[in-house]
Simulated assay, not measured.
Amino acid sequence: MVTLTSEPIDVSTALNYLQSDQAGAIDLFLGVVRDNTQERPVDRLEYEAYDRMAISEMQKIADEAQRQWPILRYAIIHRKGTLQIGEMAVLIGVATAHRADAFDACRYIIDTIKKTVPIWKKEVFTSGEEWVNAHP
Rank of each mutant, 00 (worst) to 15 (best):
I85W: 01
I85M: 09
I85K: 03
G86P: 09
G86N: 12
G86I: 07
E87A: 12
E87I: 11
E87C: 11
M88Y: 09
M88E: 13
M88C: 15
M88F: 10
M88W: 02
A89G: 12
A89Y: 08
A89K: 06
A89Q: 09
A89D: 06
V90S: 07
V90M: 14
L91D: 03
L91G: 01
L91W: 00
I92D: 06
I92H: 03
I92A: 09
G93D: 05
G93K: 00
G93W: 00
G93E: 03
G93H: 01
V94D: 01
V94K: 02
V94F: 08
V94Y: 04
A95N: 11
A95G: 09
T96D: 04
T96P: 01
T96L: 08
A97C: 11
A97L: 07
A97T: 13
A97Q: 14
A97V: 14
H98Q: 15
H98K: 13
R99H: 13
R99M: 07
R99V: 05
A100L: 14
A100R: 15
A100T: 15
A100S: 14
A100H: 14
D101S: 13
D101N: 15
D101C: 04
A102P: 01
A102I: 04
A102N: 02
A102C: 11
F103H: 09
F103T: 03
F103I: 12
F103Q: 04
D104Y: 13
D104W: 06
D104P: 01
D104E: 14
A105N: 03
A105G: 11
A105H: 04
A105M: 07
C106V: 11
C106L: 06
R107V: 10
R107Q: 12
R107N: 13
R107M: 10
R107P: 03
R107F: 10
R107E: 12
Y108Q: 14
Y108L: 15
I109P: 01
I109K: 08
I110H: 11
D111A: 13
D111K: 11
T112A: 13
T112E: 14
T112L: 12
I113Y: 00
I113V: 15
I113S: 00
I113K: 06
I113D: 00
I113Q: 02
I113F: 01
K114D: 09
K115T: 13
